[in-house]
Nucleic acid binder design. Structure first.
Lengths: 345, 345
DNA sequence: CTGAAAGCGCTTACAG
DNA sequence: CTGAAAGCGCTTACAG
């Protein structure tokens, strides 16, 4: 089944290929209304669909955008991607979505591939490491529109949209202080990136401003994985019980640490927030997998607040930044830290 | 910054463009090792990257696949998409992902667009309605590789991979029977599709086989939305309390109904599973948003089972089916219902 | 065997 | 103004 081309229509209508192209693309051309209508009619009847690949080759535009994230199925990426995809689709752009598995060499592979496919722009949530900074700089210097999301590189001049992680951490500490703690404990992942480092920095600053204890001894970084996280919290609770529970507040870096926290709390029958003052990033969403998880539920007795990122705003802003770059604007200020909120209702 | 083309390399190496193409593509050509090496060397030095768009135009292959789902951010779609994307990427295919918002006309729009971009295959989780069946049939008849996931159309001959929803519902009822209920109540969404209809059918069959009560009066279909769901359960609990709680078991269609169920249970202080025998599809994942959600947690006193779909298997099978079709195999039996499991560890 | 040339299906600069 | 022709960058059938 052969596809219909402009040439086919031109022959059937007895006009030039140029005329067909211009009529169908609504470009200025002086032609009798009769012929114009005839061309359109034939195109319609033959169910003509322009060959987008040929258009791309000729125009050097593919109307496609690459979205590169560590894991399309975790954290807020699904929601973020949906948000961006919907916005860009309505403007005629299609999104090619890639999963780097937080691996810098996959990241390079994917991005190179997207460039080879002539995406017109890239939205990237980069791997934590700085390993690919030069690689990204090369791309950005080539003039390819590029917006980082979720993570950024301070000192580099990429456009980015991230949460204001430092601000969020500071609100969190303020909350703990209002709970009369005199010391804050930071629990995070060993694997660092700028986003979580900003959270750590925020806690540090806020602790100093509020004159509560926060030294390197209060920082605990662990491997990801529920088991490892539990061990970390087990150790923390042991050391806390010596000094008294109620005078310490726990800040956890993301909800990837929550189930491990609950596992350790259950071992000591610590209720939240009664026995334990905690606060952390990301909405509370519990995966109930094991029988003991039902016991964990009982630990969460009353509401406690969490720090929530504004996914929608991040998505919208990233889309707007990319569109501005696509329009060729050389705006300087395409860097945005989106404010976060403390919610507990 | 001009891109390097085969012609550029040919000129620099003093050979024909054909020679360059064949050498770089490792196609059979008789050429002196020196020239072969020279071509490769120049390509490397100039950082030659083939123009994929031109290749596509010429070869009529784009190495891209369209994935179309109602909502990339909900249910198990994120995980499913990641699974499929990873598999297809390793074979050189890129995935263009689209979000139909469960709207049949968006669905047509997206699919038509993907075809215009010459995707080589499609993986589609279709909207519930049968509205687009003819549209999909036209595409399938054109010979475009096409695999449905999550939902299918009985009587139509599309390849598909779905969970064995009927089997899952039957296991669920058997569990309720083991809890000594004499009657099963089905709670689902008003908006139907084949997947959930199969669950309803499974419940019906199992109820008959186990000689417990299940008539149309035991079926409750509600609008989605936590508030509406709560009202439905409120009504159910009222009618149940008249007849006694413990003799009825509740089957809920998907975890989109869970929070509403808990809301209504809280109003009557019904504990689970002590006061209420329930079972439903999908893993238990609670969104803790409102203060009263903490009270809801207390209702979940002990483990109760849920029916879990095998996302990984669905993803793998869908990928394999599509790859088989891409290879041009005219296999008949590309239809698979993936078994589900009851889990409560 | 080899490489010049045709052709994929468009858009648009430019000759008439 | 108009439309034939060039050209985007490849691959491959085919003339030599």
């Amino acid at each position: 089944m052969k596809n219909i081309s402009l040439k086919d229509i031109a022959e059937k209508a007895g006009v030039s290929q140029t005329a067909v192209s211009k009529v169908l693309n609504e470009l200025p051309i002086r032609i009798t209304p009769a012929k114009r209508e005839k061309i359109k009619e034939i195109a319609r009847r033959l169910n003509y669909r322009p060959n987008v690949v040929a258009q791309s080759l000729r125009s050097r535009k593919t109307k496609s955008i690459g979205i590169v994230v560590p894991d399309i199925s975790s954290l807020f990426y699904p929601e973020l991607i949906r948000n961006i995809e919907t916005r860009l689709f309505s403007l005629g752009y299609r999104c090619i979505i890639c999963n780097t598995q937080d691996n810098p060499s996959y990241e390079r592979l994917y991005i190179q591939d997207l460039i080879d496919r002539w995406v017109e722009g890239l939205i990237i949530a980069p791997c934590g490491e700085e390993e690919n900074v030069n690689f990204l700089q090369d791309i950005y210097k080539m003039g390819l529109p590029l917006v980082l999301i979720d993570r950024y590189f301070p000192g580099e001049n990429f456009p980015y949209v991230v949460s204001d992680n430092k601000q969020g951490a500071k609100i969190a500490v303020k909350f703990l202080v209002s709970q009369k703690v005199s010391r804050v404990i930071y629990v995070g992942e060993k694997r660092r990136n700028q986003a979580v480092d900003d959270r750590l920095r925020g806690v540090k600053e806020a602790a100093r401003e509020n004159r509560i204890v926060f030294t390197d001894k209060e920082i605990f970084l662990c491997e990801i994985g529920r088991e490892k996280v539990r061990e970390t919290f087990r150790f923390i609770f042991e050391s806390m019980s010596r000094k008294g529970l109620s005078c310490s507040g726990i800040f956890f870096e993301s909800n990837r640490l929550l189930m491990g926290l609950l596992d350790a709390a259950r071992e000591r029958n610590l209720f939240i927030p009664d026995d334990l003052r905690i606060i952390g990033f990301d909405p509370l969403s519990l995966e109930i997998v094991y029988p003991q998880d039902f016991a964990s539920l009982r630990l969460l007795k009353n509401p406690f607040p969490i720090i929530k990122q504004d996914v929608q705003k991040i998505g919208n802003t990233a889309s707007e930044f990319l569109l501005a770059l696509l329009k060729g604007k050389k705006e300087k200020n395409l860097r945005k830290k989106v404010r976060v909120k403390m919610v507990w209702r």
